[in-house]
Computed example of a mutant assay.
Amino acid sequence: MLYYLHLLSGSFIGFNVFRYITFRSIAATLTALFISWILGRPTIALLRRLKMGQPIRGKEEVRHLADLHGSKAGTPTMGGLLILSALVGSCLLWAVPTNRFLWICLGGTSALGALGFWDDYLKVVQKKSAGIPGRVKLLVQAAVALIAGVLLLGSPETGREASKLAVPFLKSVFRIELGWAALPFFLLVVMGSSNAVNLTDGLDGLAIGCSIGVALVFAVFSYVAGRPDWSSYLFVPHVRGADELAVFCAALLGASIGFLWYNCHPAEVFMGDTGSLALGGAFGLVSIAIGQELLLVLAGGIFVIEALSVIIQVASFRLTGKRVFAMAPLHHHFELQGWGESRVTVRFWILSLLCGLLALSSLKLR
C-alpha cells in the first residue's frame, strides 16, 4: 500500500522513491526480516504453550537416526507461520496491490501453507509422522497449480507469455504451442518444487538456508523480466508486470533470513510442512509466471538432488531390492556416513550458493 505515497511527490519529491521497485524490494526484504525477528520469540513461545512439538518418526526410521536426532523430539513445529506472516505483511506494505502476478503467487503460497499447517496439526495431534495422506497433498498442490495456470493462460495480458519456455544459457526462447495443454507442465513444476523443498527440510537450517539463494535469484530475474529494456538486452522473455514479483521474492528472502535466525542449529523451531510446502510452491509459481521453469532446476539444484535421491532410492529398492544410499533423502545418507549435521548443512549451503551463482551467470552467458 505504501506504493501510493508516490502520488504525494508533488508536495514532497522524496515520496517519489516509492515508485521504484528497487527501493521497495530492499524495503520489503528488511520489513520481512524485522517481522520475523519481532514475531519469532512470541511465536515460538505460543507453539510451546500449545504443545505443538515435532513428533518423532516411525520406529524403523528412529532406529537409524535416534542417536542423531532423538533430542529434537518436542521442538516446536509449524514455524512456517512465521515465514508466511513476514511474507504477507511485507508484500501488503510494499507491493502494488493491483498486480496480477503478486496475487497469484501470494494466494498460491498461502494456500500451500494452509495445506502444510493442516498436515503439521494432524501430526502433532496424532503424535505420528504421518499426517494428511499423500494423495490428498498432491491433489491440493495440483489444484493450486491448476488455478494459477488457468489465471495465467486465460488472461489476454499473460496468456501469450505463459506459453514461452526460456532455456538458460541460450538466447532463443522456445514457444510451446500447446495452449491450455501447457497446464500439465505447470502442475509438474509447482508440485515438484513444493515437494522437493519438503524433502530437503530434514536438518536444522538446511531447507531455509538453500531457499535464500533461490529467492535472490528469482528476485533478480523477475525484475529483469519486467523491464523491456533489460530483458531485451539480456535476452530474457519480457513479461509485463512481472517486475513486481521482485518485491514478492525480496520479501521471501527477508522472511527466510529472519526464520534462519531461529532455525539454525540447534533449531528453536522447525518450519514444518507449513513452511516447506509454501516455500517450494512459491518458487514454482514465480518460475511459471516469468517463464523460467528450467532456471528453477538450476537455481534450486539442491532441492532437485534431494528429490532425485528419494526417487532413485525407491526405484532401486522396488526393482532390485537394494538401496543406492544409506538413507534418503541425500542429507541423511551423509549423516550416516559420519558427517555431522552442521557439516552437511553448511556444505549443502555452499553447493546451493554455487547453483545460484551459476543461475545468475546465465543472464550474460548466452
Rank of each mutant, 00 (worst) to 15 (best):
residue 149 G to F: 14
residue 79 G to R: 06
residue 291 G to M: 12
residue 90 S to C: 06
residue 223 Y to C: 04
residue 224 V to G: 08
residue 165 L to N: 02
residue 144 V to Q: 04
residue 350 I to S: 07
residue 10 G to C: 02
residue 216 L to I: 09
residue 289 A to K: 00
residue 177 E to M: 10
residue 135 R to N: 11
residue 78 M to T: 01
residue 27 A to D: 06
residue 222 S to K: 01
residue 295 L to N: 05
residue 204 D to M: 05
residue 207 A to F: 00
residue 103 W to K: 03
residue 14 G to I: 11
residue 26 I to M: 07
residue 174 F to Y: 11
residue 363 L to H: 09
residue 53 G to Q: 04
residue 207 A to S: 13
residue 254 G to W: 00
residue 142 A to E: 00
residue 276 S to G: 07
residue 298 L to M: 11
residue 73 A to M: 05
residue 194 S to K: 11
residue 191 M to Y: 03
residue 288 I to Q: 04
residue 77 T to Y: 12
residue 56 I to E: 15
residue 204 D to K: 06
residue 127 K to N: 13
residue 278 A to E: 11
residue 151 L to C: 03
residue 40 G to K: 13
residue 43 T to W: 05
residue 187 L to Q: 01
residue 71 S to R: 01
residue 304 V to R: 06
residue 232 S to L: 13
residue 38 I to N: 14
residue 146 L to I: 00
residue 365 L to A: 14
residue 209 G to Q: 07
residue 199 L to F: 07
residue 131 G to E: 09
residue 328 A to C: 08
residue 37 W to F: 13
residue 51 K to G: 08
residue 55 P to I: 10
residue 88 V to W: 08
residue 294 L to I: 05
residue 27 A to S: 09
residue 57 R to L: 14
residue 75 T to S: 03
residue 24 R to E: 02
residue 105 C to L: 00
residue 203 L to V: 10
residue 258 G to T: 01
residue 66 A to K: 09
residue 219 A to Y: 05
residue 234 L to P: 11
residue 259 F to T: 08
residue 286 V to N: 12
residue 182 A to D: 13
residue 349 W to L: 00
residue 11 S to K: 11
residue 306 E to W: 05
residue 247 V to Q: 03
residue 121 Y to N: 10
residue 338 G to Q: 06
residue 353 L to M: 12
residue 144 V to R: 08
residue 173 V to P: 03
residue 107 G to I: 01
residue 181 A to F: 15
residue 239 V to Y: 13
residue 124 V to E: 06
residue 198 N to Q: 07
residue 8 L to D: 08
residue 90 S to P: 04
residue 360 L to P: 10
residue 69 H to L: 12
residue 64 H to M: 13
residue 113 G to A: 11
residue 11 S to A: 15
residue 208 I to F: 02
residue 263 N to R: 04
residue 46 L to P: 03
residue 336 L to Q: 10
residue 305 I to K: 11
residue 282 A to V: 08
residue 232 S to W: 01
residue 344 V to E: 00
residue 187 L to D: 07
residue 3 Y to D: 00
residue 222 S to Q: 07
residue 182 A to Y: 15
residue 289 A to E: 05
residue 283 F to S: 01
residue 29 T to D: 05
residue 179 G to K: 04
residue 268 E to Q: 15
residue 258 G to V: 12
residue 276 S to D: 08
residue 178 L to I: 00
residue 25 S to G: 02
residue 363 L to G: 04
residue 195 N to V: 06
residue 279 L to N: 12
residue 335 E to H: 09
residue 190 V to Q: 00
residue 292 Q to K: 14
residue 235 F to Y: 12
residue 366 R to C: 13
residue 18 F to W: 12
residue 279 L to H: 13
residue 152 L to R: 13
residue 24 R to Y: 08
residue 167 V to M: 08
residue 230 W to T: 00
residue 313 Q to M: 06
residue 133 P to E: 03
residue 342 S to F: 02
residue 111 A to M: 14
residue 83 I to M: 13
residue 56 I to G: 15
residue 220 V to N: 04
residue 24 R to M: 04
residue 9 S to Q: 14
residue 319 L to F: 08
residue 133 P to D: 10
